[in-house]
Amino acid sequence: MKLDKYTVGKRYGKALFELAEEGSETDAVYQSLIILDGVFDEIPDLGNILTDVRLTGDEKEAIMNRLLQNFDGLVKNFLKVVFDYNRIDDVPFMIEEFNRRYDIKNKIAEGTITTAVAITPEKKAEIEAKVAEVFGYQKALLKPLIDESILGGVVVEANHRVLDGSLASQLAGLRAALGK
């Protein structure tokens, strides 16, 4: 039975996190995975290329060696194993699982902040501090999004929790209370 990408990602990401913890390298591995994630963002088909049956083993090896030049230690060895098991196309899911575990360990809430108009960096930092306090985390990292349909206010989604302070939801609540 072939495992889906999500399951593979969870297993490999968990294994990498546990190895990093064992060697007290979680912060260093996390930083390396940020770089690796950036590579996969820049070249979205990299995983497919490295698992493509139309390429020879030597061609794949040359591409992989080029990628490995950017990493060392645990991350480099991890990538070699993932490549050897032909799972390189699942790396983004592995990174996601590692990051999830890293955030839990370090009490970091990641998510989005949606507003009707752009907010200043100062206001974003203020909201992040408040969200961290409300959710009981050390820190909140929120990606700003703009959605004019919320009319005003703020909607924060972090770690599967939502704080909806949008004008649109307040108006909907008012309509419901008035029976309209």
Rank of each mutant, 00 (worst) to 15 (best):
A62H: 10
M94Y: 10
I119M: 05
V91Y: 04
L19C: 13
L178F: 04
Q69H: 03
E22V: 05
D72C: 01
F98H: 08
A125F: 04
I113C: 07
F71S: 09
G153Y: 05
D147L: 01
G173E: 12
E22S: 15
D27T: 12
S166Y: 00
L19D: 12
G111N: 03
T26L: 07
A62Y: 03
A132P: 09
I63W: 09
V91A: 04
E18D: 15
L167I: 14
A177V: 07
I49E: 00
L141Y: 05
L145R: 14
D103G: 02
R175A: 13
P44Y: 04
L68C: 04
A116F: 05
N86A: 12
I108G: 09
L16K: 03
L3D: 10
V29A: 09
V53W: 03
K2N: 15
K105S: 11
A15L: 11
D52Q: 06
D147C: 06
T114D: 04
A132H: 03
G173P: 03
L74C: 00
A172D: 13
I88M: 05
I88H: 02
M1N: 13
I95S: 12
L36Q: 11
I127H: 01
G47A: 06
L174F: 05
A158C: 05
D27S: 11
K80L: 07
L79T: 09
A28Q: 14
G47C: 10
K180R: 10
L74D: 00
P144C: 00
T7G: 09
K76H: 14
K10H: 14
T26G: 01
V91C: 06
V81L: 15
K2H: 13
L167E: 01
F135R: 03
P92M: 03
T51I: 02
R175P: 09
A129R: 14
L33H: 06
L16Q: 10
V155Q: 06
M1A: 14
E133K: 12
I63P: 09
G111I: 00
A177N: 12
V155D: 05
G165I: 02
T120V: 08
F93C: 08
E97K: 08
Y30D: 13
R161H: 08
D147G: 04
